[in-house]
Structures are given as C-alpha cells and as structure tokens.
Design a protein around this nucleic acid. Structure first.
Length: 885
RNA sequence: GCGAAAGUGGCGAAAUUGGCAGACGCACCAGACUUAGGAUCUGGCGGGGCAACCCGUGGGGGUUCGAGUCCCCCCUUUCGCACCA
C-alpha cells in the first residue's frame, strides 16, 4: 500500500472534479477506488483496529467465524460472499456493543501444493506461503474486519505441533490406534482416504476416480466411540440447519437390533448375524455372508470349487463397480466450488444420474454346501455367500428372511430358496398382504411361543430369550466408522510415532515435539510418501531403549488441521499449549459459524468429535464447537457453478477496480438471500454501484448543513415527517433482519427505498425544509445503517458529516416505534374477493369506520350497484370484502 | 426407489401469521440535460384489451368471503440417502 495515501485529503479536495460546468456534474463524484484505498491505508495503520478485547472484558462476547480457506492463491466471488456475510455480522455486533472475535487463517496443508510442486518445481511450502501472501492482500483489499494478529497457518510448526500433541493424547487414551484393515485408496491422490472422503465410491477430490480397496496398516482415530453422543448432540443443535443435521444423522446411521449366533452344522463354529428384525427369525430360510467373511474363507480353503466360485463372485462385484463408472465421465474436472471455505479441495457435482449405478447391482450368491442351525427352532438353514452383504456393517452376515425383506425376497426368488411367512397383517379377515410384507405393525404366526405377539413386543421378548440362552444379545450398530487419518503424502503433519525393533510402537515424547516436516524434499510421481526415502527423517532413536527406531512416514489427513483450529484463534501465539483454556472458556462455543454446506459431513463431524475429545481431556467445557451454523449458497454464473474448467470464475481483482469493494460486497448480499445460490451478473454490480454513488452525492450535498448541528428526532417541519417515518421504518427492518432472518437482500432494498425517498425530497432539503438537527439525524442514521455492508463509503461519509469518532464502534442507532408508525393506511376493498378500490383511513379505524368509508367509495359503489350484499368481511388494518349476490 | 427443499415478469428477486402479487435492482422503452455519454435526472415497464374490464405465482382439483401462502394428486429442478440387514 502506498504510504502517501495514509492520510485523508482535506474535505473538498477529495476527488478529481469534472471539468464541465453543468450544475450536477460539478458535484463531487463517487470514486470508490481512491476512497477505498485511502481508508484501507488508514485502517492498516491501526493494527489493533479489529482486535477483540481480552477474555476479562465485561462486554458480552460474540465469536463470528467464516470457514478458513485453502490457499489456492486466488479468491473468487464465493469467498467474497462468504466473507461479506461474516463481516457484516461482525461489524453489526461491534456496533451493538459486543466484544467481537473475528479471525481468519489458512488451511494450508494438502495435495494441491504437492501437485503444484511437481508442475512448477516449487517446494510446497514456498508455493503455499506465496499463495497465502497473495490472498491476504486480496482480503485486505476487501476491507474485511479480521484481526490479523490471530492469523494462523496450519502448515507451520507452531500450529501442527499441536496436531501431534493431540495425537499423542489420543494415543494415550486408546483413541488413536493402528490396525491392518481394508482401506480406501485413491490412485490419483496416491494415498488412503477416510470413509467420509469417499463419495458413492469415488474420491472426493477426483470425481471420476474410483476408489480402490487396499489392505494396509493405518492409523485410526476412534470416532466410533462418540457415535451415540454425536448423534444425540444433533437434537440440541437447533441453531444448525436441519439439512446438515439430517445428513449427519444419516452418516452416523444408528441402528438398534440384535446379534444372534447360529451354530455351523457339524462344527463348534458359530456365525453371528445382526438383525433389526429378530421377530422374523422363524422365517429365516438361509444365512447370507459377505463373500469376504472369514467363515467363507475357511470353507473355501477346504473346497477348491467353492473357492473358485467365491472368487468369481468377488470379481463380479468389482467389475460391477467399475461398470458404474461408465457414462459418468463427463462430469467435468475439479469442482472449484464457488462458496468459500476450504474450497479448492472440495469438489461438487456428484449427482450425475449416470453414476452410482453400482449401488443397485444384481444380487448374486454361492451356496457353500454347509448348513447352520437356527437357535430358536433348531431348523437347518443353508449358508450362502452373497454379494449384497457388506463385510464392514454389522457382523458381515445376515439371516435371510425372504417373506419380510425386499432384498432377501429378491434373492430367494432368484435362487429358489424357500419363503416362509411369519408375520401377518394385524386385521383378521383382510386379504393377505403381498410378500414381502415388511411392516412392523403385524402379528407373528408360525413362530413358536411368540405366535400371536405384535412385532415390537416379540422383538423385546425374543432378544431377552436369546440373551438368557446365551446365543444372542441386543446390539446397536453404527455406520460411522473410525476415522482413518494416515496419508501416504508429504505435505501434511508428520504422525509422531516411532517403530522400534525392541519396543514396538513408541510415541514421540512431548519434549521432542514438533516432529518437523523436512522442507528440502524431492516430490516425485513415485508411489509412497517421499518421507520414506529420506534416511535423515526416517532414522531415529527409540526413546525407551535408546536403540535405532524407524519414524512413521505417513502424515495426517488435513481434516485434522481444521478439526480444532478455531480454538487456537483465541490465543494464536501460545507457545506452551494448543490454546489458553481460560480464553476458550470465555469465547466458546462459536456464536456464528459460516461456510458452505459441502462440509456438512466432513469437517463438521470431525470437529464435533475433536471437541468432545478435548472436553474429555479436561481442556474445554463445551460439548459442541458452534452454537449456530449458517450455510450460504453458492455463487453461480450463467447457470453454472463457477469453475476454472467452465471459465466462468469471477475474481475480485476484476471487480474492485471497476466498481469498488463496497459495490462488490453489497451486490453479493443484495442479489439473493444469503442461504440461496446467487447468480452473478455484472450489470447488477453496476446497479449497486450506482446506488452507492447516489448515497455519496446525496450525503455530500447536504453534509455541510449539518456540521455542528445537535441531533434531534423532534419533528420541526411538515416536510420532515414522512422522511423520519421512513427512516425509522428502515432502521426497524434492518435491526430485525440482523436479529432474525438474515435476508440482507431485503435489508439493502429497504435502504434503497429510503434513499429514493430522500433524493425525491432533495430540492426541499436544499431549500431548508428540514431543520439541521433533524437532517443530521437522518444523514447519520443512513450512514450508520450502511456501515455493516459498505464500510469504506460509510467511514468516509461519517467523517464528512463532521463526526470525529470511529464509525466502527459507534453504537447502532435505536429505532423509534412512534416515529415509524403510519398515521393513515391504505386498505384494499374487495367485492367477492376481487380488488375494486383502495381507501385511505386512519391507522386505528374501527370496523364501522372501515365499512362506511368503503361504501362511500365511488368505485365500490359502482361495483355494488344492483347487487345484494350478503356479508361484509372486515379485518381492521387489513381489508374490507363485500360478499354479494 | 426413499426423504427434503424449491418452481413467481425478459433477468436476479419481494410478499414474517391466508388479506392490494411482482417491493428493490437489472435489462429494456420514452423523455430531459448534453458536442458527446457505459454519466446524471424524470417517467414507463406481467399478459390481453381503445376502454370498462378480463387473465395471471409449474399443471389439475379442493378448503375459504379471500390462496403464491393451507390440503390432495401430478410434472419439473436441486439437494441428501440409497443393498446398512
């Protein structure tokens, strides 16, 4: 920023004046670029301008946060919209007297930096830090009210060392563990992915890349331990969108039922099945096991032909998955989604109909030749391997009840397995329901001692019976699995673990943290983490025995970084702890969190988990990170999501020189309600810019008149009455919008209406029809109302009005209900529900007054002529309706 | 397939509880001021009709004095879930 701009020019010489002599054109004109640069320089000279007061402040606190971005290097209008919403709220809350925390940071680890390193031969750290510097300049140009003193960058050791610290704490408590298991492998990322990062079988970053399953040893965090609590907590999160809560409920996927052990005939082995319908167990006509089930393996080991058929089943399964890929290929590149927050990592556009087909693949199965015994009725049932049974859900085995389950019915029909009905419709005499009959309101038949019971009663009784006889128990199953956090990538937090030949897995001691990520590293296309090829990183000393140890070379999922970052903003420079617990106790939970809905499952479930872990470590008191969540809509252009591949990305760098920051921001709030998608139209930005220009010229025309005037609402002239009324109506609406619906588009429309009315009275005002004290009130209130939305223009005009205090902390004005009240209102008069006239009556006109006034109206009389009035509907303050024949 | 949200002028959108449909803005049209206008100002702007008036909120029914708003059926779009036993 040019230092010569650091002080304001004296009033009157601010903007270049036009050379012509026209009376309107000689007026000062709105030059946003010059005005905004000047104010930004002034603000930059006050580094603590947006600093929150410490946690000891007596003011009520307000923590407003926008999701931190991935530093791609370029802001787009999705970011601008996200930040404009948060910034308006922060500024409003400051003016309302709150102690506001409004920080910003960088989600700076991640794959794009490695890709860029390969492409440009630039080290990931350098590329990332350069992008951050560029984007910070862009943010400063947007005039956003961030306290940069609390800025955090997740790829720097003073941040990621705490990822490692938390990892060790979780390891100590058994919440971080290592296991060999089947994991999701993205061949394009060349790393493992968490379940949350696989969407319909595809990689979340590579929407055309089918995720493979690999058997690997990996680090996991025990999210499943908190599954029930994460689910229960959703009921209390009434400040979160229902949509997000539903998505999380689906993801957690709680299912209550029972496990029942079937004995394998001719052996001591049992097969445990999970069922939510133990009441239908008398109708079980086979067991279906996942093809990968250990028992199937055991059978196959002794039966070459079976082994071959199971292998064929598995092969078919994977080829069916790939068939689902056909036709999905046109979806188009990375979803550089236009919403703000973590963006460039997030992809959109998953729901092409062409994909997802493999979810509904044909059912295939193989009979193993073995049988199992139903413990309830001692019947033999055949044991099958079936492709529709999932290994990693429940026990990987089911009892198949074709009469009462659609999938089992389909399978049994195909393979000719018996179908045994054990539940009938509750009302006798009805024609029997078609099978499969899946409702749970029926009565049991042919079910031994439970025959005649209702389904729910039987479920309880049969579960208890199984428990008492030692072959079953009530079981709750969750879809939510543990979070696989190992990544075979370089640009992430090193997992602070060592492998010693003698002592096994050994955690890095706290005092050796951070385990620094080496900066000089060769990024290649080869598989595996480049860290594994660096002896100076890998070779370490075992802290237990002093012998040689090998360092873990996997890094952490970048979602670890964003799982707790908002806590550190409260004490971002703390070198001794992840955060100051007293500061967190004051600031948490976040009062308002704002970001895109694409993290409804990912970031927002991980951070809810992390919060609970920290609570159980005794570090914090809150159960949830954020009391309120707002998911803003995307910015689209020409009917499509902004994306590089479509070439319709709009950068603030092109908008700002043309229209100014205030215009770009105001447009992003004006063009649509913030929760809806916004169609970017440059003409619309121009329109908003014209509006700000009208405000500027109007205030500047009359500013001199109000210098030194005391403020007064007192109505001293007839001309002032309608203007003051409109002023207070507008103020009331905006105040209510901030506290309620957040429909800033209509807030801004209301200010436009006010300005239209004021400029229409321009000549009167110029002629002195409004006393200076009243005019001062009007102009100041107008400027204050614009302050959350157009901070640069407001600051300028505030000063031009002769105010010397900072508008940033000036108290938000209070509306006056009496002044806002209309003294007369227009009431529609209908005849048979059709509008016939509008009458003007006193606000408190009685029913009789209304009817008399309506009947006196000429148009109403014409409409009633020759008709019989059957009824008159009168709603005082609303309408009059004559019902006639 | 299941669930949710949405569908209003040429465009973005308003209409907080059933009560004047289309606020506000864009685009467009006409005019003023101009040597000039991507500036500014004034007026117009859902459709039909000279008019009185009629029609109009995805389509069809219904409730009501009165429906964009409530109920039923259907269509379309978006989002979520989708062998979870």
């Amino acid at each position: 920023m040019d230092s010569t701009q650091a002080s304001p020019r004296p009033a009157g010489s601010a903007a270049p004046t036009d050379t012509n002599t026209d009376s309107i054109n000689t007026e000062v004109r709105y030059h946003p670029a010059e005005l905004e640069a000047r104010w930004q320089a002034r603000w930059a000279a006050q580094p603590d301008l947006y600093a929150a007061e410490p946690a000891t402040s007596s003011k009520p606190k307000y923590y407003v946060l926008e999701m931190l971005p991935y530093p791609s290097g370029q802001l787009h209008m999705g970011h601008v919209r996200n930040y404009a919403i948060g910034d308006a709220l922060a500024r409003y809350m400051w003016m309302q007297g709150y102690n506001v925390l409004h920080p910003m940071g960088w989600d700076a680890f991640g794959l794009p930096a490695e890709n860029a390193a390969l492409k440009n031969n630039t080290p990931p750290r350098e590329w990332t830090l350069r992008n951050i510097a560029q984007m910070r300049v862009q943010m400063e140009q947007l005039g956003l009210s961030y306290d940069w003193a609390t800025e955090l960058t997740t790829c720097l050791p003073d941040y990621y060392r705490w990822n490692q610290w938390f990892f060790l704490r979780m390891y100590e408590r058994g919440l971080a563990y290592r296991k060999q298991s089947k994991v999701n492998w993205c061949p394009d990322c060349r790393t493992v992915l968490a379940n949350e990062q696989v969407i319909n079988g595809y990689c979340w970053r590579h929407e055309d890349t089918l995720v493979e399953q690999r058997e690997l040893e990996q680090w996991f965090l025990r999210t499943s331990q908190y599954a029930q609590e994460l689910l229960d907590g959703l009921d209390k999160l009434d400040g979160w969108p229902e949509r997000v809560r539903t998505m999380q409920r689906n993801w957690i996927g709680r299912s209550a039922g029972a496990t029942v052990a079937f004995t394998v005939e001719g052996s001591d082995d049992t097969v445990k099945v999970f069922t939510t319908r133990i009441d239908t167990i008398f109708g079980a006509t086979s067991l279906q096991l996942a093809p990968e089930h250990p028992l199937i393996r055991a059978f196959a080991d002794q039966d070459a032909e079976l082994a071959q058929r199971v292998a064929a089943l598995l092969a078919e399964q994977s080829s069916a998955r790939e068939a689902g890929d056909v036709g999905g290929g046109a979806a188009g590149g990375f979803g550089n989604d236009a919403r703000g927050g973590f963006n460039d990592d997030a992809r959109g556009g998953f729901n092409d109909d062409a994909r997802g087909g493999f979810n509904d693949i044909d059912k295939h199965g193989v009979f193993t030749g073995h049988y199992a015994i139903n413990p309830f009725n001692q019947e033999r049932v055949p044991v099958w391997a079936a492709n529709y049974v999932l290994l990693d859900y429940g026990t990987g085995a089911i009892m198949s009840v074709p009469a009462h389950d659609e999938r089992d019915f389909e399978f049994a029909t195909k393979y000719g397995l018996p179908i045994q009905q054990v539940v009938r419709e509750p009302n006798a005499g009805e024609t029997p329901a078609a099978l499969p009959f899946v409702a749970e309101d029926g009565l049991l038949v042919d079910s031994g001692e439970w025959t005649g019971q209702g389904c729910e009663q039987a479920q309880r009784a049969m579960t208890l019976f199984a428990k008492q006889h030692g072959f079953g128990e009530a079981t709750v199953t969750f879809r939510l699995k543990d979070w696989g956090v190992s990544r075979q990538r370089y640009w992430g937090t090193p997992i602070p673990m060592l492998y010693c030949a003698k002592d096994g897995i050994v955690p890095v001691p706290d005092e050796q943290l951070p385990v620094l990520l080496p900066e000089q590293v060769e990024i290649t296309q080869e598989g595996g983490s480049p860290l594994a090829r660096m002896p100076e990183f890998v070779n370490a000393v075992c802290p237990r025995c002093g012998g040689p140890a090998r360092r873990e070379t996997d890094t952490m999922d970048t979602f670890v970084d964003s799982s707790w970052y908002f806590y550190r903003y409260t004490s971002a420079k703390d070198a001794t702890a992840p955060f100051d617990t007293a500061a967190v106790a004051y600031w948490f939970p976040i009062d308002q969190y704002i970001g895109g809905v694409e993290h409804a499952i990912l970031h927002l479930i991980y951070s809810r988990f992390w919060t609970r872990v920290m609570r159980d470590l005794g570090m914090i008191k809150n159960d949830e990170p954020a009391a309120r969540l707002f998911t803003q809509g995307m910015v689209i252009k020409n009917g499509a999501k902004m994306s590089k591949s479509k070439g319709n990305v709009v950068s603030p760098d092109e908008m700002i020189p043309r229209y100014g920051v205030d215009s770009a921001r105001l447009y992003s709030l004006f063009a649509a309600p913030p929760d809806r998608d916004l169609d970017w139209q440059e003409d619309g930005v121009a329109g908003v810019s014209r509006f700000l220009s009208r405000v500027y010229r109007f205030v500047m025309r009359h500013a001199e008149r109000v210098h030194d005037a005391p403020l007064a609402d007192a109505v001293a002239s007839a001309a002032a009455v309608p203007l003051l009324r409109k002023l207070h109506q507008t103020l009331r609406k905006i105040t209510q919008d901030f506290g309620g619906r957040w429909h800033f588009n209509t807030s801004i429309a209301a200010i436009m209406e006010l300005v239209n009315q004021l400029t229409a009275a321009d000549a009167e005002i110029a002629a002195g029809a409004i006393p200076p004290a009243t005019l001062a009130r009007i102009l100041q209130t107008l400027v204050l109302m614009l302050a959350p939305f157009a901070p640069h223009l407001s600051a300028e005009l505030w000063e031009r009005l002769g105010k010397t205090d900072s508008i940033l902390r000036h108290p938000w004005p209070k509306f006056d209900e009496a002044l806002a009240r209309e003294d007369a209102i227009e009431i529609p008069v209908q005849v048979n529900g059709k509008l016939r006239s509008v009458i003007r009556v006193a606000l408190d006109a009685s029913r009789d007054d209304l009817e008399a006034a309506a009947r006196a109206d000429e148009k109403v009389q014409a409409a009633l002529k020759g008709k019989t009035v059957v009824k008159v509907v009168i709603v005082p303050g609303k309408l009059v309706n004559f019902v006639v024949r």
